[in-house]
Every structure is written in structure tokens, then in C-alpha cells.
Design a protein around this nucleic acid. Structure first.
Length: 821
DNA sequence: GGAGTTCGCATACC
DNA sequence: ACAGGTATGCGAACTCC
């Protein structure tokens, strides 16, 4: 029979030693179905020049791996003309019975002398399947298939908990435009202890299209009507599994659920020796290891929203932390409910009622958040062509790499391998290479600043000069682009790249083009889809430069990355020189942006000048107008002095644009590790200065805050300092205040985890060091006035007043004198 | 043991 | 291990006499 099908979940199984891919998705009627497809595992050997391909193939066919569970053999070989890193090669495609043994078979044939390289045995089977069969996640396909019988695959039909299972005869992308909206179910648990393995689960909430409920085994008179009660934790968890299965969702989502909710539930089920049966295969979820384990459920894609937001989406966000509360506030304008967790050890009936409501709200917020960023996840899936499960967990480097892998066939390319252990060590040993330039600003208050910037500078350079590992040459010739000279390990170096475009630059140029196209489309027709598409291509383009310098990359090239940066320096430096030659004074420049004074020149003059600059740029490089800024403030560095004079601070400025919008970079205002009092005062001061054009109003603000601080009128919440723990406590060599604060928190019984944001304030206490005065928010100790004055407020405002010749320290000292007398 | 310097660390910019 | 380099500035840790 023939039907339309959209694959959502990808998995595979072995039958009689061979691999089959199992797709779960929806048909056009909206039914969740399973389609099994065969896959012939294969990998490549690339031959040395003039090798006897037939002879080698004859040897390869004999390779065999015998294991207790299975025997893997070579089924057949095929000889092809292929490309490897852009060069023509003779290659043999080796088909084997089981992909799990691809690596072992590759090792076994490793001693055949005429084999140059073995490749693609290290690509996961699902990626290989998608790449070769062109079956794309979350795209509609036209499927020719027959229904599974109970005889097929030893009766797998009965083991799959779905009404309709098929075995595919053919699967092709369909031209038909069909809609797809996933069924999303969100869940969240509440527990008595935060640590997995300790404590119990008191309740679990579910929120979806037709479901909003809390399951619990705690008694509660004041609970809302959405609560269902069970006799114990075990029964509750059993019912949770049942309801998840019956909800028949495409996606089960939580927030940090890979790291908390799912493993916690699993650990409780283990304790009761009970299966956690959430999916279609009647088995426990699988947790593949990694830094954070990933919980995979068969037939329903488990999505931990936090992970996608952390690796991909966070760049769009302003939130200082990626807590559900903050992210939800920013993206959907909804917050979590408040709940006082210190009550957990002693809960009244109404506390339980509130806790249940809190629990439900978490799932509701998670569900809304999932709907909100679904478009972005969906677009990423379609562009990268990896399954939803992986798209929501992979790093940007992996996304860039997968995007390349899934497009290599267009170039007849055999994929490069992942670096092995020793190669990784070698790459890591290599030092850094020179980066971009940042120009030192002259501290001051400026009017009418023009800012130019290069659009996607690194990407446009890579495309314009065809920069990649495969197109790199050490020597000059007629057919190459020449890099500017740059230092590599203290050696002046020049490298060259083929003029004939390679696959890396071709793919990146397509990404850049699509970004431009969808940016325009978004401008003309603002909706979530056009925005998500434009953003996804932008992220992909921006991450591509970093990919070439990333030591874990298949297409790593330190020379390519270093050369890209040499071009970046050259074009920015040259452009600055041209702007200066035209008589403008440069105010500032960082990497790909240049700010200069407009002076008496008109907007038209500037735009004409910009066009002239653009006419001289090569390839797809482009200089853009960032904005005309009405006013701008640049300050001096606090510490270092150069020959007595104060140095201008880089990466620290405040601007007001043509629409009177304020843009603050680098100042304490935007740093989360400074207390609110300081940040608020500084941002209000900058705002006054930029809007009113002088420092007088700012001085009034500062004096007021200092006076309140001295009179102890400041709320303790405004004095809390937040610092993230970036490593386990025992790995710190330096015992800074936040480390001490974390240890104090640990003593209260709360488990300390990497990534936690530690909050503390500085109070009056004996001791010389700041860490001796670290207090937790709930401690009842007076705040240290001197600390907040001398180490928070003054450092943050001094350099601003310096620009206007106001000696704030002197004024503060003067006021102190006055109050003394 | 105090002053000056370096180092470790977190966070920001692009 | 899970994109790169450049930069500020705190507070602890170290060096020196």
C-alpha cells in the first residue's frame, strides 16, 4: 500500500545479524505508525594511486568478524571514482552485514598495503541511513509498504505498541505540501531531595492539548480538581507511564529532564523493581552516556528543552541564567508560581495544595515554551537533516558537521573521519593563533558616531577566499588566493587556497545566501517561520568559522582558521585606514565593526562613502551601516596604566542610537556578577548622561544611592552577588568568595552542582579577606558598607565621572568629612 | 608581615 | 570535548625584602 508519512523518531534494531531502521511518525490521517526500512551498512576504503582495485576488493570480501552474539561478513564491494578532500580518488564501497562491526572490519583490512584510507565506518548508522537513503526527519514522504505480519522479524509486530506497522518497499520525499503540528506533552516532577537516588517523588504533572493534571500519592484536602491521588509512589509512577503512553504524543518534553526528571523517575522505578515503560517498545528508556546522559524513549521523542536552549537558542536570549523561570518570562511572558522550598520538611495541607499547583504550572510553562520554540527546532531539523532527538541535544559544532555530512554526496565526496585520541591530543597541544583586533578608544563623551560593520565577516571571508582544509596549499601558484602573512607558532606564515571553490565554501555560501534571502522574507512577512529560518542560517554561518578551529572537527584546519583571522585583521585595518584617509576620526573598532565621528558630513555623504568602500571589497564581502549614534560614552580602564596615562577600556561603551535607544556593552550594568544596586545605579547614570548630554543628573543619582547605602537603607536583595560555579568544589585552586559561599550552602544540606548560580552578600565580620565576610542571603548580618562603597559602587561609577572631570572619590570623602564634623 | 605582582576565575564582546 | 580569540577586573595566592 501507499501512503504519506512523516518520520519523527529514528531508531534501529538487528535481526539475524543485520541492521534495520525503525521510523515512528504520523500518516496523513494523523495516526502514529511505525515504518521499518532495510539498510545496507557500508563504509569506504580509498586506494593509493594506481592500486589494483579488483585485487584489493577480492581480499576485502574475505574479511569477517566473529563475536559470540553475531558474525559480521562483507556482503559485496563496489568500485567507484570518488573525491576525498576535493581530490579524485579510486575508492571501494564495502557493504557489511552489521554497522556495529564496521570499525572492526575496517581494522581487519587495515594491513592491506594498497589501501590509503578507511572512511565513514565512524558515522552513526542513523546518520548514514538519512544521508544515503535521503529519508529526512520531519519531512513528508511518499511510502510504498506492506503491513508487518506476526511472522516478520520473529514477531516484532507484537512487541511494538502501535496499531500500524509497516515494512517499507520504497520511501521518497513527496512534493505534496502537507501540514504537521506535533502533539507535545510536557511533564515535571517534585521530589523530597534534589539528588538522584535520594528522596522520593511526591508528584508528577502532565500538560498537553487535552491533559492537565497532577498525579500524587500525598494526601491533600486543599488540592485543585486537576489532582489525581494514588496510594503510593509506585502506583503513581505506574499510572504516569500508562498516561504517557495513552497520550500518544510525538514529543515528551521537560526542562532539564535529561539531567533530572527522567533519570530520577528511572531510579525510583529501579528501586521498586518496576519497568518504566513510556514508549512503544515496552522497555525502559535508554540513557546513552555523555557529559549529561540523554534519555531516549522509543516512539516518542524525549526533548529536554533546556539542552536545545543551552546549545543553540541561548544566543537569542537576554536572560542571565537559563532557568525555566527566566527563559519563560522572556520568551512567553509567563512565570513559574512561587513556592517556598524551605517548607518542604514541614508541609501543611495548604502548602501541599500550593505545591501541586506549582507543579502543574511548571508543566504548563514548559509546554508553552516548547510550542514557542518548536518552529526553531523544526527549521533546524530540516536544515541539518538530523532526527529531532539529536537536533535538540547536539552542540553547534556537531550541527555544522552534520550539515556538511548530509550534503557531501552532491560533491561525490567520501567523508573525513573523526580525529582519533592521539590526533585529538596533538591538536589540543597546539597553542592559540592570533585573533581579531580591538582598537583602544580614547575615553570621552562623543556626539554623532557612525558605525559600520562587516556582515557575517568570517563566513564571507571563508567563502570569498575558499578557505578550508581541502583547498589549502603551502605554495603559491596562479590558481590560488593568497592569505595575508600571519604568525603561526611565532613563525611568519602565508597560506594559499584554490580559486576553484571546494565543497566547504560552496556549502557555506549557500548558507549565507539563504540567510540573506530569509532575512529579506522575514522583513517582508514577519512570522515565526521566516524568523526561525533566517536565525537558523545565521547561527550556522556564524558557527562555521569556529568549527574549522575546533579540535574535535572532522574538517579541522588550524591554518584555515588562522588564515581567516588574518583576513579579518587585514580588511578591518585597511578599512580603518581608508576611513581615516577620508578625514574621519576613528572612535573605536572591535573585530568587524568600525565607529567614527560623523562631523559635518551628511547622511547621504556617509552612505555614498559606504558604497565606495563596498565597491572595493572582494567576493561576497560586504560592509554595512550599523547605525548613526547620537551620543556615545567610552571610559578608561580601571587598573593598568601605560606610562602614567589612563588607557581606554576596550569592549566597554554606551551608545544612544538614532531612535534614542540605548545600547550598553561590557559595563558592570550588563554583568550578572555585580550586585543589583551597582548595576541599577550605573545603568540609570548612563541613561541620564546619554539622554541629557551631561553628567549632572547622574551625580545626583550617585549621591543619593551612596547616602542611602551609608544609612543602611538598602534592601539586602539589591546587594546579593551572583556567581556561577563552573567546576566541582574540590577542583578550585583559588578559594574565592563564591566558592566559600557554595561550601556554606553545602553545609545546609543542599547538594552543590556544577552550573549552579551562587548568591551571597558581604557582611560585617572579622577577617581581612572578602571571603571571610561572605554571608548567605538568609543570614542575619549587617551588610559591609565599606565593601559596597569601595568595591562595588565607586569602581562602577568612577571611570564614568572621570570622563567629565568629576572626582567622585573626592566628593564622597568630602561628604564623609562633613558628616564627621 | 606588608606591598607589589601574578594568577585564577567569571564574565563579557564580537 | 562538544565553535574561535580578545578583553576587563576582581580577589586570592604568591614573591620579595
Amino acid at each position: 500500500m501507499r501512503f504519506n508519512f512523516i518520520p519523527i523518531d529514528f531508531d534501529y534494531f538487528d535481526f539475524e545479524g543485520e541492521n534495520y531502521v525503525q521510523l515512528v511518525g504520523r500518516n496523513e490521517e494523523g495516526e502514529k505508525i511505525c515504518v521499518i526500512d532495510s539498510y545496507e551498512s557500508n563504509f569506504w576504503v580509498i586506494l593509493k594511486e594506481n592500486a589494483d582495485a579488483e585485487g584489493i576488493a577480492a581480499k576485502i570480501v574475505k574479511a569477517k568478524i566473529i563475536k559470540p552474539s553475531r558474525t559480521t561478513v562483507v556482503l559485496k564491494t563496489e568500485i567507484y571514482d570518488k573525491k576525498f578532500l576535493g581530490k579524485d580518488v579510486k575508492a571501494i564501497k564495502i557493504f557489511i552485514t552489521n554497522h556495529k562491526d564496521a570499525h572492526d572490519i575496517a581494522s581487519e583490512i587495515g594491513d592491506i598495503d594498497e589501501i590509503w584510507k578507511r572512511r565513514e565506518y565512524d558515522i552513526p548508522i542513523i546518520t548514514k541511513y538519512i544521508k544515503e537513503k535521503k529519508v529526512q526527519p520531519l519531512m513528508w514522504h511518499d511510502v510504498e509498504a506492506r503491513e508487518l505480519t506476526d511472522e516478520d522479524f520473529n514477531g516484532i509486530n507484537k512487541k511494538i505498541n502501535l496499531d500500524k506497522c509497516y515494512i517499507a518497499e520504497s520511501i521518497f520525499l513527496t512534493e505534496k505540501e502537507l501540514e504537521f503540528t506535533p502533539k507535545i506533552l510536557a511533564y515535571d516532577i517534585e521530589t523530597s531531595e534534589r539528588e538522584i537516588g535520594k528522596g522520593e517523588i511526591s508528584m508528577v504533572s502532565l500538560f498537553g492539548d487535552n491533559i492537565r493534571k497532577v498525579l500524587t500519592w500525598k494526601e491533600c484536602e486543599s488540592a485543585g480538581n486537576y489532582v489525581e491521588f494514588f496510594e503510593d509512589e509506585k502506583t503513581m509512577l505506574k499510572e504516569f507511564s500508562k498516561q504517557v503512553r495513552e497520550a500518544n504524543a510525538d514529543i515528551l518534553t521537560g526542562y532539564f529532564s535529561d539531567g533530572f526528571d527522567l533519570p530520577y523517575i528511572k531510579s525510583r522505578c529501579d528501586k521498586y523493581k518496576m519497568k518504566l515503560d513510556l514508549g512503544t517498545n515496552g522497555k525502559n528508556p535508554s540513557f546513552n552516556k555523555g557529559r549529561i546522559p540523554s534519555g531516549k524513549i522509543s516512539g516518542t521523542v524525549h526533548v529536554d528543552l533546556y539542552r536545545f536552549i543551552n546549545s543553540v537558542f541561548s544566543q537569542y536570549l537576554q536572560s542571565e541564567t537559563l532557568s525555566l523561570d527566566e527563559v519563560a518570562k522572556e520568551l512567553i511572558g509567563e512565570t513559574k508560581e512561587e513556592f517556598d522550598f524551605s517548607k518542604l520538611s514541614n508541609m501543611s495541607d495548604s502548602d501541599w495544595g500550593k505545591f501541586m499547583s506549582y507543579n502543574l504550572q511548571d508543566s504548563k510553562v514548559t509546554h508553552k515554551l516548547a510550542l514557542k520554540i518548536w518552529t526553531d527546532i523544526f527549521e533546524f531539523c530540516k536544515i541539518i537533516k538530523e532526527p529531532l532527538f539529536d537536533i535538540t541535544r547536539d552542540s553547534m559544532a556537531t550541527h555544522v558537521e552534520n550539515h556538511i555530512l548530509h550534503n557531501l554526496d552532491r560533491f561525490n565526496e567520501v567523508a573525513e573521519k573523526r580525529p582519533g585520541y592521539s590526533e585529538l591530543q596533538e591538536r589540543k597541544m597546539k597553542g592559540k593563533f592570533g585573533g581579531a583586533l580591538v582598537r583602544e578608544p580614547k575615553p570621552g563623551f562623543y556626539e554623532n558616531i557612525v558605525m559600520f560593520d562587516f556582515t557575517s565577516m568570517h563566513a564571507s571571508i571563508i567563502v570569498s577566499f575558499n578557505i578550508s582544509r581541502a583547498t589549502l596549499h603551502e605554495e603559491e601558484s596562479e590558481d590560488v588566493y593568497e592569505s595575508p602573512e600571519f604568525d603561526l607558532d611565532n613563525i611568519p606564515t602565508k597560506v594559499y587556497f584554490d580559486k576553484k571553490q571546494g565543497f566547504f565554501a560552496t556549502l557555506l555560501s549557500e548558507v549565507v545566501d539563504k540567510r540573506k534571502k530569509f532575512k529579506k522574507e522575514y522583513a517582508a512577512n514577519k512570522n515565526a517561520m521566516t524568523k526561525a529560518r533566517s536565525n537558523a542560517y545565521k547561527l550556522l554561518a556564524n558557527a562555521t568559522f569556529g568549527y574549522q578551529g575546533f579540535f574535535g572537527a572532522r574538517y579541522y584546519s588550524r591554518e584555515a582558521a588562522a588564515a581567516t583571522l588574518a583576513f579579518v585583521r587585514k580588511f578591518t585595518t585597511d578599512t580603518i585606514a581608508t576611513i581615516e584617509d577620508a578625514g574621519f576620526e576613528i572612535v573605536y573598532s572591535d573585530t568587524d565593526s568600525i565607529a567614527f565621528l560623523q562631523n559635518e558630513k551628511s547622511v547621504d555623504d556617509i552612505m555614498k562613502f559606504l558604497k565606495e568602500l563596498n565597491d572595493k571589497l572582494p567576493g561576497i564581502m560586504e560592509l554595512d551601516l550599523e547605525d548613526f549614534y547620537k551620543r556615545g560614552l567610552f571610559v578608561a580602564k580601571r587598573s593598568a596604566t601605560k606610562g602614567g596615562a589612563r588607557e581606554g577600556a576596550k569592549k566597554k561603551y554606551a551608545l544612544m542610537d538614532s531612535k534614542d535607544k540605548i545600547k550598553i556593552r561590557g559595563f558592570e550594568t550588563v554583568r550578572r556578577d555585580w550586585c543589583k544596586l551597582t548595576r541599577r545605579l550605573q545603568s540609570e547614570m548612563l541613561e541620564k548622561i546619554l539622554r541629557e548630554g551631561n553628567e549632572k543628573a547622574a551625580l545626583i543619582l550617585a549621591k543619593d544611592v551612596i547616602s542611602k547605602l551609608k544609612k543602611r537603607e538598602i534592601d539586602k536583595n539589591d546587594l546579593l552577588i551572583k556567581t556561577q560555579l563552573r567546576r566541582p568544589l574540590n577542583e578550585y585552586t583559588s578559594q574565592g568568595p563564591h566558592v566559600i559561599a557554595a561550601k556554606k550552602i553545602g553545609e545546609t544540606g543542599i547538594p552543590i552542582q556544577v552550573g549552579m548560580v551562587i548568591e551571597y552578600y558581604i557582611g560585617e565580620a572579622k577577617g581581612k579577606l572578602v571571603r571571610d565576610k561572605v554571608m548567605l542571603p538568609n543570614e542575619n548580618v549587617k551588610y559591609d558598607i565599606n565593601y559596597y562603597l569601595n568595591s562595588q559602587i565607586l569602581p562602577a561609577i568612577e571611570n564614568i565621572f572621570d570622563v567629565f572631570g568629576v572626582d567622585i572619590q573626592g566628593i564622597v570623602d568630602g561628604e564623609t568629612q562633613k558628616t564627621l564634623f
